[in-house]
Computed example of a mutant assay.
Amino acid sequence: MVVKTDPAKAVRQAQDLIKECNRVLLNDANDLPQAFEQSADVLELLAAMDWIVLEGGGDPKAEAATTAAELRAVAAGGGQFAKNLADPASARFLMEGSAERAVLLSPKEIEAARTPADGWKRDQLAA
């Protein structure tokens, strides 16, 4: 027995799944900065307690401080990442039933847009 699925219902179900996936992704992205900050704190704590040893020698506290600073920089970027995901203008992460049309180029148009093997001449670039 073949069961027919209403295409509109299938699209709504797909939208709901995508929205749920986006919600989970956004929640995880919001947690990233805190995870990196906490990792940096633990690293600095371990270095202060002299629990870090470097195989090749060197100053563990200096290396821990450098790595902690890098983790904090990543945390700041993670916060921006979460803000970008939450931005309504981000069509990749929000699906509200509107779709943008994609323009597909013909093979001739693609070939015409390619850079010549010897590069573009100055007068071609100016045109």
Rank of each mutant, 00 (worst) to 15 (best):
K4D: 11
K108F: 08
K9F: 05
A65F: 08
R122C: 04
S106P: 00
K121A: 11
F81M: 01
A127W: 06
A48M: 00
L25M: 08
A89P: 00
W120G: 10
E100S: 06
A86D: 12
K19E: 12
P33C: 03
K61N: 08
Q80R: 02
T5P: 03
I110Q: 11
A62N: 14
L25Q: 12
T5K: 03
A40W: 01
D31S: 05
P107W: 02
P107S: 00
V42N: 13
D41M: 12
G58Y: 11
Q15F: 08
K4L: 09
L71W: 03
L25T: 12
L43Y: 06
S90T: 10
R72G: 01
T5Y: 09
M49A: 13
R12K: 09
L85T: 01
A64T: 03
L17T: 11
A29K: 02
G57R: 02
N27P: 02
M49P: 03
R114N: 10
A75S: 04
R72E: 01
R12C: 00
G97Y: 08
A76D: 06
R72V: 00
E96F: 15
D59C: 15
N27D: 15
M49Y: 09
S90P: 06
V42Q: 11
A35Q: 13
L17A: 14
E70N: 12
R72N: 01
A40C: 03
L43Q: 10
D41L: 11
Q38C: 03
R122N: 12
E44R: 08
A69R: 04
D31W: 00
Q38I: 04
Q15C: 05
A35N: 12
G58A: 14
G77T: 07
G77A: 09
A29R: 02
F36M: 10
A76C: 02
P60D: 06
A126P: 11
P60A: 04
N27L: 04
E100T: 07
A82G: 01
K121G: 01
A127F: 06
D41T: 12
D6K: 14
A10H: 07
T66D: 10
A62I: 09
E96Q: 13
D41P: 08
E100D: 12
L25C: 11
N27T: 09
E37T: 07
D6Q: 07
G79E: 02
P107D: 01
N22D: 07
N27Y: 06
A69F: 02
I18Y: 13
R101N: 08
S90N: 15
D6C: 15
A40G: 01
R12I: 04
T66M: 05
E63M: 10
Q15W: 04
A117Y: 11
D16T: 13
G56Y: 09
D31R: 08
L54S: 07
